[in-house]
């Protein structure tokens, strides 16, 4: 089963990490990625730019609205995600637990229902 690990975090907290702490967090991610690759679970990962760079597009009755900002105005925003191929939910939880976001944010684990990574020929 493929799982998306959606990482939610208050952006201010990320911005206020010291340079050392930031490096340490990156190292923790790298370690998890190495582990997931060795286990054949790794598919892809991304880190998103802060929500100031976000644009939200909506259509209502054929009318397009473009909003400057993220979809939700909540404190914790989507900052990045992983796609992993895990045998069990427990395995996906283990990967999530190894990431450095659980103290100050949260990770939503969602099984993937449709997946296509074939690039156009």
């Amino acid at each position: 089963m493929r799982y998306a690990l959606l990482i939610y975090q208050a952006e201010e907290v990320v911005e206020n990490l010291s340079a050392t702490e930031r490096k340490r967090a990156v190292a923790v991610h790298r370690k998890m990625q190495t582990q997931a690759k060795a286990n054949g679970a790794f598919i892809l990962t991304t880190q998103l730019m802060p929500s100031s760079a976000a644009t939200t597009v909506r259509g209502r009755q054929g009318k397009l609205t473009i909003l400057d900002g993220p979809f939700a105005e909540t404190k914790e925003l989507l900052v990045g995600f992983y796609l992993l191929d895990c045998k069990t939910l427990a395995e996906a939880i283990t990967y999530a637990q190894s990431l450095p976001h659980l103290d100050t944010g949260c990770i939503e684990i969602r099984p993937v229902s449709y997946y296509d990574d074939r690039a156009k020929k």
């Binding site: 907290v13 206020n16 702490e21």
Partner: peptide, 12 residues
């Protein structure tokens, strides 16, 4: 401890 410091600074 650093996550705590970052949280405090963000909340200040």
């Amino acid at each position: 401890m650093d996550a705590l410091a970052a949280t405090l600074k963000a909340a200040y």
